[in-house]
């Protein structure tokens, strides 16, 4: 199969646009440290809503529509949760059994590393989706890219919040988040040159990424939200959590409108 150069260039341009969106969190650098410390718990709550929303509203239904059987997809999601549990155990074991959830001086918590791994995997899947849709039709590629950008911006904001909470400096958090977003390019290149393998790998990658998001949100981020117990933190974090879910649901409607055009 020969692929038109314009298809390859279009897919690469779309991937770079997605990577560029991950740098949108650069605004965090202009905030004062005191303001940033106040904002981070709400960004973490937003990340929980966005990650769970992405898994349950976006990735799992997409995997079911591709795979067909709910039981197989659910089993693969569980494999993803299990895989991320083992991965986190390995990360903690490598760091002298560190189980503390508050970062010390210069120490990076496992939750930040797990978030980076999950985000890199998610972006790889996004690259497969972008290139796959460009191969089908450039117009479909454009709409898919817009949909991915729409869910990428709130997710990157939440991810940077989680990385800051994990002990990274603001500059490092934005940069590492950007480096992880670059996995969108290998995902697209993999699809452009091995499109059939990439298409079938989505049935595995989508639920595994969903399992990773559920694990990170439920086991790493939600315990962080329980550190502050006041009415203001309850209402603020609940609002940010809910907003993450609403954003993901809104993006599903937005995608349906784009596909209908």
């Amino acid at each position: 199969m020969t692929i038109a150069l314009s298809t390859i260039a279009g897919a690469i341009a779309a991937c770079l646009a997605v990577s560029l969106c991950s740098l949108s969190s650069v605004f965090a650098l202009w905030l004062k440290p005191a303001v940033l410390n106040r904002v981070v718990p709400y960004l973490v709550a937003l990340a929980v809503g966005v990650l769970l929303g992405d898994a349950f509203i976006h990735l799992i239904p997409d995997a079911v529509s591709r795979h067909g059987t709910v039981s197989d997809v659910c089993l693969t999601v569980l494999v993803g949760v299990f895989g991320f549990f083992v991965l986190e155990k390995l990360v903690r074991w490598r760091h002298d059994h560190n189980v503390d959830i508050t970062p010390g001086s210069g120490e990076i918590l496992p939750l930040a590393k797990m978030n980076l791994i999950g985000d890199a995997m998610h972006n790889f899947v996004d690259g497969i989706l972008i290139a796959g849709s460009f191969l089908a039709d450039p117009a479909l590629g454009l709409t898919t890219t817009l949909a991915i950008i729409a869910h990428e911006v709130p997710q990157e904001l939440g991810d940077v919040g989680a990385l800051l909470r994990g002990g990274y400096a603001p500059r490092q958090a934005v940069l590492y988040n950007f480096y992880c977003s670059l996995t969108v390019l290998p995902g697209a290149i993999f699809t452009l040159f091995l499109s059939q393998i990439a298409e079938s790998s989505l049935t595995l990658l989508l639920p595994i990424a969903a399992g990773g998001f559920i694990y990170i949100a439920a086991s790493d981020l939600i315990p962080v939200l329980h550190e502050r117990c006041s009415f203001s933190s309850l209402s603020g974090q609940a609002a940010a959590f809910g907003m993450g879910i609403v954003l993901m649901q809104f993006i599903v409607f937005f995608e349906q409108v784009l596909i209908a055009i």
Binding site: L5, S6, A9, G10, I12, A13, L16, P138, A139
Partner: peptide, 11 residues
Amino acid sequence: MASIDSYLHLI
């Protein structure tokens, strides 16, 4: 469909 030149400018 956009031309390859437009895509390269965008990249």
